[in-house]
C-alpha cells in the first residue's frame, strides 16, 4: 500500500513537472505571470488561513464564521474609506484609518463571536459547536446583507500605483506587490508574537494541553480570546487587500474565501502556522496554473478536489503532525 502511494505520487509529480517545463518553454512570460498571480492569491489565503489554523490548534473547532470576519473587515474599510473620502480627507490618512478600523472592528467581531457562539459550547459535543459556528456564519452574512446591501459595492483601491514600480508594473502591479510584501511582514510579526511574547507562549501551551495550562495559572479564556483576535486581525488585513485587488465586495465574499483558506490550512496541516502559509501558497499557485492552462470556470472544483485528495491520502497535511486519539 505504501509503495503504491509513493509510486502514484512520483507519477503525478512527474506529469506535473513535464507540463510545467513544456509550458515554461512555450511561453515563459505567461508562466511567470501565472506564478506571481498565484503568489498573490496564496498570500491572501495565508492571511485568512492563519485564523483557521490558530483557532483549530487551540480549541479544535472549524470556525465557520471566520470568512465572515474577513468580509466584515473589508466592509468596514470600504465604509470608512468612502465616508472619509467624501469628507475630503487626505489619501494617506484614509488608507491608514481604513486599515486601522478594519482591523479593530474585525478583532471586535471575532472576540464577540467567540463569546456568544463558542464559549458556552466548549464542553459540548463537537457537532454542536460546529452547527453553532455555521449558524453564526449565516447570521453575520445576512446581517451585513440586510444592513447594507445585497449588491456588489465598488471598492476604490486604497493602494496607489507606485511611481518607482512602473518599470515592473506590466508583470506585477503595485497592489499585488503590496499584498505579497504585507503578507511577509505580517507573517514575521506573527512569528515573533508566537515565539517570543508572553501571550504567544501561553497560546502554544494552551494548544498543547488546556487543563495543564490552566493549572499553571494561564487564563485559558483570555488565551482563546486572544487567538480569535489575532486571527481576526490578519483576516481583516487580507480582506482589505483583496478588496483593493478585486475592486468590488459584497456580503458573500467571505464564504468562498473562507472555504479556500480552510482548504489551504488543511493542505498545510491544520493547527500548524507554517503549514497554513505553505498550504496557502501551494493552493494559490496551483489554482493559478489550473485556471490559466485549463478551465477557469472549474477553479473551485479544483480546490475541493485537492482538499479531498489530501484528506484521503494525507489527512494530517503537509506539515501536520499525526496524533493518536486518546481512549
Amino acid at each position: 500500500m505504501r509503495w503504491i502511494n509513493i509510486a502514484l505520487g512520483v507519477a503525478v509529480a512527474g506529469i506535473i513537472c513535464f507540463f510545467a517545463v513544456r509550458e515554461l518553454l512555450i511561453d515563459p512570460m505567461y508562466f511567470f505571470e501565472l506564478f506571481l498571480g498565484g503568489l498573490t492569491r496564496g498570500s491572501i489565503y495565508a492571511l485568512i488561513a492563519l485564523g483557521y489554523t490558530m483557532v483549530y490548534g487551540i480549541i479544535q473547532l472549524i470556525n465557520f464564521a471566520h470568512g465572515e470576519i474577513y468580509m466584515i473587515g473589508a466592509m468596514t474599510a470600504l465604509i470608512v474609506a468612502s465616508v472619509l473620502g467624501m469628507w475630503g480627507w487626505n489619501t494617506a490618512v484614509i488608507v491608514i484609518l481604513a486599515f486601522v478600523f478594519a482591523i479593530v472592528y474585525s478583532c471586535a467581531y471575532g472576540f464577540t463571536v467567540e463569546k456568544i457562539a463558542y464559549k458556552p459550547l466548549r464542553n459540548a459535543p463537537r457537532l454542536s459547536a460546529l452547527i453553532s459556528a455555521i449558524g453564526m456564519s449565516l447570521f453575520l452574512q445576512n446581517y451585513v446583507m440586510l444592513a447594507q446591501t445585497p449588491e456588489y459595492l465598488p471598492f476604490k483601491s486604497l493602494i496607489p500605483d507606485f511611481k518607482f514600480w512602473e518599470p515592473f508594473a506590466h508583470i506585477i502591479t503595485s497592489v499585488e506587490i503590496t499584498i505579497i510584501v504585507t503578507t511577509v511582514i505580517v507573517m514575521i510579526l506573527l512569528g515573533i508574537l508566537i515565539k517570543f511574547t508572553r501571550i504567544g507562549k501561553a497560546m502554544r501551551a494552551t494548544a498543547q494541553d488546556k487543563v495543564m495550562s490552566a493549572l499553571l495559572g494561564i487564563n485559558v479564556n483570555n488565551v482563546i480570546s486572544a487567538t480569535f483576535v489575532v486571527g481576526s486581525a490578519t483576516a481583516a488585513i487580507g480582506g482589505v487587500l483583496i478588496a483593493c485587488h478585486v475592486g468590488q465586495i459584497n456580503f458573500f465574499i467571505g464564504f468562498l474565501a473562507g472555504l479556500k483558506a480552510f482548504i489551504a490550512a488543511v493542505l498545510g496541516g491544520i493547527g500548524s502556522i507554517p503549514g497554513a502559509v505553505l498550504g496557502s501558497l501551494v493552493l494559490g499557485i496551483s489554482e493559478s496554473y489550473f485556471t490559466g492552462y485549463f478551465y477557469s470556470e472549474y477553479e473551485d472544483v479544483f480546490a475541493f478536489t485537492i482538499l479531498v485528495i489530501i484528506l484521503i491520502f494525507r489527512p494530517s497535511g503537509i506539515l501536520g503532525r499525526h496524533d493518536a486519539q486518546k481512549v
Partner: peptide, 13 residues
C-alpha cells in the same frame, strides 16, 4: 436566513 442563523446558535447553546 438571519433568524435561522441566530436560531442555530441559540438552539445549540
Amino acid at each position: 436566513m438571519l433568524v435561522f442563523g441566530a436560531l442555530q446558535v441559540i438552539v445549540m447553546v
